[in-house]
Design a binder for these strands. Sequence first.
DNA 1: TCACACTCTTACACTACGTGCAACTTTGCA
DNA 2: TGCAAAGTTGCACGTAGTGTAAGAGTGTGA
Lengths: 232, 232
Amino acid sequence: MNVPPSPASPTSAPAPSRRELNKAATRQAITDAALSLLRSKGPGGFTAEDIAEAAGISRRTFFNYFSSTDAALASVTHGFLDIVIRQLELRPAEEPLLEAAQAALMALADPKTVEPLAELFALTQHSQLMAHTDLEAWDHCRTQVFAVARDRVARAPDGADELYVHALAGSVISCGKAAMEVWFSRRGTDLSPESLAELRQLLIDAMALLGSGFSPPAAATAAPAPSAPRSS
Amino acid sequence: MNVPPSPASPTSAPAPSRRELNKAATRQAITDAALSLLRSKGPGGFTAEDIAEAAGISRRTFFNYFSSTDAALASVTHGFLDIVIRQLELRPAEEPLLEAAQAALMALADPKTVEPLAELFALTQHSQLMAHTDLEAWDHCRTQVFAVARDRVARAPDGADELYVHALAGSVISCGKAAMEVWFSRRGTDLSPESLAELRQLLIDAMALLGSGFSPPAAATAAPAPSAPRSS
DNA sequence: TCACACTCTTACACTACGTGCAACTTTGCA
DNA sequence: TGCAAAGTTGCACGTAGTGTAAGAGTGTGA
């Protein structure tokens, strides 16, 4: 399980020490093994011990990295959502949150980003075994969005905008999730440019729906439609 | 565990047979026992066997009713959310969903309805042991709202409003949840009329925020404030 | 009232989960 | 090189959750 003494490229990070490299490699080996087993055995068809064996570590070590098999798989979702959060934090502070979210979500249209999540979704589609941990991942993302939103909203003295920030953060997550779900259900694991364009459009439309208060019950957009293509 | 041969009042239900009464009583006994143990031992301080013993049944029977200790406690949340869904389904079909949701949510301001949830929240506040199953309960409610919303929206031929319904249902849930969270964090288990009035107002405001597209980042309402008091 | 079918409960056994603990090995640093 | 910190591993233990078969309770028709 140890990393061979490869001359790790000292690109940018402050201190990619040996220990951290080993841990990262082990962590990656675990998620790879878990995903591989999910492909071959299906959801629920393997145990924590199976993952550990496939990753070349002991069962005990597996639990040092992840608290459950679900958590190992949900790391895919976490990684996916972390990218969005990082993009969101990069947006200028004075930008309205909905626009910032819309812009940040565009990062999801990158094939390399969505591919793992799309596969995970396809493999666990009709099984609620992932539901637990996956919902947690989205909820964790919600708290991140909440933190970003809180810092952007002018604080009322008595915390009167508590509701505003909570509701907004939750709704942004719900709409993003809705866009992903609709895309998955329509295109499955299709990562073609047209499919990704549709995902982009769905994300834009979802944020637009939120910004317009869901006004017109019939105003919807199909695939590469003519709605506001405002992005970076 | 069996119900004494009490002359069950034949009020309305079609067939409250003995078996169903027993099952309902057992189910109730389990949740009561679980809640009682939660009060005395705190979250994570008891096992499924403890609950079974307290409820006067075997451990195996406990698992015939609930799939986990969390699920037994989350039945409180489920019961709470079921009330809202039932209210929502009673609203006239032509009423806009946001208004229907706002009206349905008013049922939550009833002390008897919120009391169990408020206590559960207070007892599990700083412990994510409930997170799993509680998130599932809210997500289950989301699917119910989705079903209601789907039936109310004029179906576009190509399913172009899929996104609309998904996003709306998720956002309604998120906003309702946000209102509950803010209320809990402000008033704890305070069930006084003023506190319930504030909850009512928070729910109204949350739906209003959603309907207005979260337009004014500073337009929030404090406690018994002067915003639209439309209710039944 | 009895007998039979159906449903629910229970005990038992078994696999898997998740964690505390105490060796043991690897890494970082002087 | 030697020591301390960090990480890995095997072991043991209690708990979760489920299959199974036997037994107790309940509904129904003769």
